[in-house]
Simulated assay, not measured.
Amino acid sequence: MSGPPARTGPIGAGGLELRELECFLVLSEELHFGRTGTRLYVSQSRVSQLLRALESRIGARLVDRTCRRVRLTPLGEEFRASLHPAYDALRATVERARTAARGVEGRLAVGFQGTADDQIMQVIDAFHAQHPQCTTQIVEIPLSDPFGALRSGTVDVAVLLLPVTEPDLVLGPVFSSQPLTVALSVRHPLASRTALDAEELTELPLISPDEPAPPYWRTVQAPTTTPAGLPIPAGPRVSTLQEGLTLTAAGRGGMLLCRPTADYHGRRDVVFVPVTGLPESVQGVVHHAARETARVRAFTAAVRAVTAVTSPPAGHPERASAAGNVT
Rank of each mutant, 00 (worst) to 15 (best):
A183V: 08
A213V: 02
T240I: 10
S239M: 15
D197T: 01
P146D: 09
T225A: 13
V164S: 02
I120S: 09
P215F: 03
H188D: 13
I124R: 01
A198E: 04
L160S: 04
G172S: 07
E199H: 06
L190A: 12
D210C: 11
T225F: 14
A183D: 06
V238F: 02
G148M: 06
E199Y: 01
T154V: 14
T181I: 08
L230M: 15
P142M: 04
A213F: 05
S185V: 02
T136Y: 08
I138N: 05
G153I: 03
W217H: 12
T202Y: 10
P227K: 00
P236C: 11
L201K: 02
M121A: 14
I141T: 13
W217R: 07
E166T: 02
W217D: 06
Q178M: 13
V182W: 00
D210H: 06
A195L: 12
P236I: 00
L160D: 03
Y216P: 08
V238H: 00
A195D: 12
E200C: 06
L171W: 03
T225E: 13
A222H: 01
D210Y: 02
L143Q: 07
P233E: 07
L190Q: 09
D156K: 00
A234G: 15
Q119F: 15
G235W: 01
T135V: 14
Q133E: 14
T165C: 14
S152F: 04
L162R: 03
D168H: 11
T240P: 07
D117G: 09
P231W: 05
L143Y: 01
E203C: 08
L241A: 13
P223A: 14
T165R: 15
F175M: 14
Q119P: 11
S208I: 01
L230R: 15
P132W: 00
P233A: 08
P209C: 10
A149C: 14
R218Y: 05
A222N: 04
L161H: 08
V238I: 11
S208P: 00
D156C: 08
E203K: 04
R151P: 06
F127D: 00
V182A: 04
P215C: 01
V123H: 04
E199V: 04
M121D: 14
V164T: 08
G172Q: 02
D125E: 11
L184F: 05
P227Q: 10
P173Y: 01
Q242Y: 09
L190H: 13
T240C: 10
